[in-house]
């Protein structure tokens, strides 16, 4: 798979997740694909929460305005949008753990057919980093997973059962990949949107998880 393809896939995913939001939403964006979402929000005014202590992330600053006392949870320089607020780590996580954040958009290594997810550790490797992943999974009002449909070697990431360590008991509400959009209703996975270049049968071949097809199946990003 070429680099260009990968970029396009990531854009496709970010674009679709951006559609989920409405003006006024409080959103926490994880690392990777989620960081691309602000580019596709159009005129919607949402408030971006950063775990390290900021509500109201603004655009990336030009080099001459970088201040490393103002960074994102990925430790990248940021700015503050009008109306932004600063607070400590315990306040920041009280917002997350107390369910005051409307949605968390997270990457995932695997998600199972009931919505359970794994996004912090790979079996057989040292488990030395978790960050805020488990706090967001446990506490955000809505969990949206954004991930490429398969890993680089073609292994499905949507699986019948997790083989990676799970991130909590809480289940995802929605999964967006470059191939389709899935929602969970009563622990059943439903395909609700599909990319125009793939059929449901083809999608099943690259998806290990069992999914139902929504009676109202739509084409993605149209």
């Amino acid at each position: 798979m070429s680099k260009k393809m990968l970029k396009e896939e990531r854009v496709q995913i970010a674009k679709r997740v951006a559609e989920e939001f409405e003006t006024g939403d409080i959103i926490n964006l994880g690392v990777g694909i989620p960081t691309m979402i602000p580019d596709f929000l159009g005129g919607k005014e949402v408030y971006l929460h950063s775990e390290n202590g900021l509500l109201g992330i603004g655009p990336t600053p030009p080099e001459e305005e970088i201040d490393m006392d103002l960074i994102s949870a990925s430790k990248q320089p940021i700015t503050m949008s009008p109306g932004a607020s600063l607070f400590s780590s315990s306040d920041s996580f009280a917002m997350i753990r107390g369910s005051h954040v409307d949605a968390a958009v997270l990457g995932a290594l695997q998600v199972d057919e009931t919505g359970r997810l794994a996004n912090w550790a790979v079996p057989g490797k040292s488990i030395l980093g978790v960050g805020g992943a488990m706090d967001l999974v446990a506490g955000a009002k809505k969990i949206i997973l954004s991930l490429t449909h398969q890993s680089k070697d073609g292994t499905p990431k949507l699986v019948a059962e997790l083989t990676y360590p799970n991130s909590g008991l809480r289940k995802a509400d929605m999964v967006v990949t470059e191939k389709g959009v899935f929602r969970f209703i009563d622990e059943t996975m439903y395909l609700v949107e599909i990319d125009e270049n793939i059929t449901v049968e083809e999608l099943r071949k690259i998806t290990d998880a069992h999914f139902e097809v929504s009676s109202d199946l739509k084409t993605m990003n149209q």
Binding site: E51, S88, S89, S90, S92, F93, A94, I96, R97, I127, L128, G129, V130, G131, G132, A133, M134, D135, G139
Partner: peptide, 11 residues
């Protein structure tokens, strides 16, 4: 190393 979630560390 004792790994704990970031929110648990703060709290």
């Amino acid at each position: 190393i004792e790994l704990i979630p970031q929110g648990t560390l703060a709290e």
